[in-house]
Design a protein around this nucleic acid. Structure first.
Lengths: 140, 140
DNA sequence: GTGTTTGCAAATGTTTTGCAGTGTC
DNA sequence: GACACTGCAAAACATTTGCAAACAC
């Protein structure tokens, strides 16, 4: 995980390296997964003048560059997370709102069946499952 | 599937039967699945003066009554569909945008594993899987 | 007639866009 | 010194709320 790869990737496209972009990427990595607002909050801890608009634009760019990806969780809130690392699916708890990550391998039986049966190719990198986590599911 | 059950369900709660509510329910059933805007469009074919606000309020009410449910699809767009019928999961094609329905039973292996391993209880009624349908997945 | 429901308008929250100034290369 | 990037303000969009008029019961 080369920390300076961002500059390199940007330059390869004729784009420019800026502190804001590095901060946004760092924030996503630190959060693991987070909404644009959460990313904004983290970035502002270091540079409080960074505008929310820049967060949106940077996230979009980083996604184009393949450094982050996003999914849509419960209420439709977009959630960004680092890409390139291990792929994973999301387990979203409706009780406490916690987001856990899980190995996409658990979906194997499902994806295989859907492919064989329907020809539908599931994009496992964008799967979110809703439900109740261990703490919320077990009554008190 | 009693078509007049709406009036009954409403009355049981001290609520009132209105044409708007029936139209919204009919529209959801006709669409199979649709966003509030799509529902609005369908309702307006019959009564063009119905306000979008009423669509939102009716959908919320119908959901409370257990007659429809909703999930969040790709871009976070809320999608409503009839409830009480057969439960199902959604297969959303990123290529053509088509939404197919599938038997939640295919998820059994996954839900069992997550329950045993993590204590996470998946709500199968709200599952959406993204990917490519047979037509879009197979090149031309 | 009473109380619920509707439609309109305005408020809200989130994301996008335009533009002039700033900073990177 | 060009041109990309940022910040600010305003626009766009989806959804929610307040309120008076209209309708179901």
């Amino acid at each position: 995980m080369p920390e300076t790869s961002l500059a390199k990737v940007l330059r390869a496209r004729g784009l420019r390296m800026t502190p804001q972009r590095q901060l946004v990427l760092d924030a996503v990595r630190q959060l693991g997964h987070g909404t644009p607002e959460q990313v904004h909050a983290v970035v502002q801890q270091t540079a409080d003048s960074v505008n929310i608009t820049t967060i949106y634009r940077s996230l979009e760019l980083l996604e184009e560059l393949g450094l982050v990806t996003h999914t849509h969780l419960s209420h439709g809130a977009p959630t960004y997370h680092p890409a390139g690392g291990h792929p994973h699916i999301h387990l979203v708890c409706r009780g406490c709102g916690t987001v856990e990550e899980e190995d996409p391998a658990v979906l194997r039986p499902v994806t295989e069946q859907l492919a064989a049966q329907r020809g539908f190719l599931v994009d496992v990198s964008h799967v979110s499952l809703f439900g109740l986590c261990a703490s919320c599911g077990a009554p008190a």
